[in-house]
């Protein structure tokens, strides 16, 4: 509940402040957002599985974001940043889909 409210609050804050992304963070922000979304869906699924743990969620959230950003950073250094970004997005997208399917099964039984 608090999490959902905080999510909405964050969206509203972002809409109000409309911050500009620092140039150095610009390639990593979209990947970080997708990674965080993955962690969020994972957490929701775990909660419905009665396997939710605050610590695990926080660690997985932060680790997801950092690893995703690190992969993209590494790719940029190696000159394959675009391809690695796509790869990360594909992998995270598949995971989000899988988690969403599990959540759907929990909520609708189908």
């Amino acid at each position: 509940m608090i999490g959902a409210a905080a999510l909405v609050l964050g969206v509203v804050l972002g809409l109000i402040i409309q911050p500009t992304v620092p140039a150095g963070l610009e390639p990593y922000l979209p990947i970080a957002v997708v990674a965080a979304l993955d962690a969020l869906f994972g957490g929701l699924r775990a909660a419905l599985d009665r396997a939710f743990d605050d610590k695990v969620f926080v660690v997985s959230f932060v680790a997801n974001v950092l690893v995703a950003a690190l992969i993209v950073f590494l790719g940029d250094q190696l000159g394959v940043g675009g391809q690695l970004t796509t790869a990360v997005v594909v992998v995270l997208g598949i995971r989000i889909f899988a988690n969403a399917a599990a959540i759907r099964r929990h909520l609708f039984g189908a």
């Binding site: 905080a6 999510l7 909405v8 609050l9 964050g10 969206v11 804050l13 972002g14 809409l15 409309q18 911050p19 992304v21 922000l29 979209p30 970080a32 957002v33 965080a36 979304l37 969020l40």
Partner: peptide, 8 residues
């Protein structure tokens, strides 16, 4: 996450 999402 919400903040970053909207920003992005």
């Amino acid at each position: 996450l919400g903040f970053a999402l909207v920003t992005q």
